[in-house]
């Protein structure tokens, strides 16, 4: 459709100043993100992988628009970034205000953004979309399991009808037996709403499962960016090679049933 990408990230650098260690010491700076170029189109799904401290989460914060980059530019070509870019975090317990009911949590973005929507219909739609019972509306986050809390967080992110969904380690804090539910949900919602997805994860199998393209970050830089398939078969950067070799692989799997 449009020729220019939805997100255009060019030469973005972000530094943070560390607190002074002594009155006489100079404040040290760390470069969290360094000279990053990225494009994201509608319905793209991009995975960000790398070690902790590689700058993945900082990059997400920049895309969300919480703070400006120190250098370079992030251009969002949609209409209204605050409405159209939403985020889901790793730990749903920290991501949901314990003093608010599910209904309040999910509808809060509509209120803040002053979107004119029939609130109760929208609430039911959202709860249905993420597979929560409608009776959940009047309950508080602590009454739910980790997986359900993540569903609440996803419902909130969907409320303002976003075009881009940012997800920061969305299943890492969940039980293994619950992860597949949330991964399937993200997969389905992405297809259903045509969302562009930026997924940060340290788990390459999760990224591989959900993303068409992967950007490998190392010490603040994007060292390699490729289509998922070719990244796994023909990695070019030494760090990517190390990362791929380091993934613990399941040596045995049950053969698929019914047999193929």
């Amino acid at each position: 459709m449009s020729s220019s990408p939805l997100f255009e990230v060019r030469g973005v650098t972000k530094r943070y100043r560390l607190p002074r260690t002594s009155v006489f010491a100079r404040r040290r700076e760390i470069v969290a993100v360094s000279r990053v170029d990225l494009d994201l189109n509608d319905s793209d799904s991009l995975g960000l992988v790398g070690d902790s401290g590689a700058g993945k989460s900082t990059l997400l914060r920049l895309l969300l628009g919480l703070e400006p980059p120190d250098e370079g530019s992030i251009r969002y070509q949609g209409e209204w970034r605050r409405r159209e870019v939403q985020i889901v975090f790793q730990d749903p317990t920290r991501a949901l205000d314990p003093r608010m009911t599910v209904a309040e949590i999910v509808l809060e973005p509509l209120r803040v953004l002053r979107l004119r929507e029939p609130m109760s219909t929208r609430l039911s739609e959202l709860l249905d979309a993420v597979g929560l019972p409608r009776a959940a509306a009047d309950r508080y986050p602590h009454e739910f399991s980790g997986g359900q809390r993540q569903r609440i967080a996803i419902a909130r992110a969907l409320a303002p009808r976003p075009r881009v969904l940012l997800a920061d380690e969305p299943v890492s804090a969940l039980d293994v037996s619950v992860r597949a539910q949330i991964l399937n949900l993200l997969h389905d919602l992405r297809d259903l709403y045509g969302l562009a997805l930026v997924l940060v994860s340290h788990d390459l199998s999760v990224v591989r499962h959900l993303c068409d393209r992967i950007a490998v970050m190392h010490r603040g830089e994007v060292v390699e960016q490729q289509q998922t398939q070719s990244l796994f078969t023909a990695p070019t950067h030494p760090y990517t090679v190390r990362l791929l070799e380091a993934i613990p692989r399941l040596r045995w799997r049950p053969s698929p049933r019914p047999s193929e």
Partner: peptide
């Protein structure tokens, strides 16, 4: 559990 893990390969 084994089936719920996305395959890496």
């Amino acid at each position: 559990l084994l089936e719920a893990i996305p395959p890496i390969d």
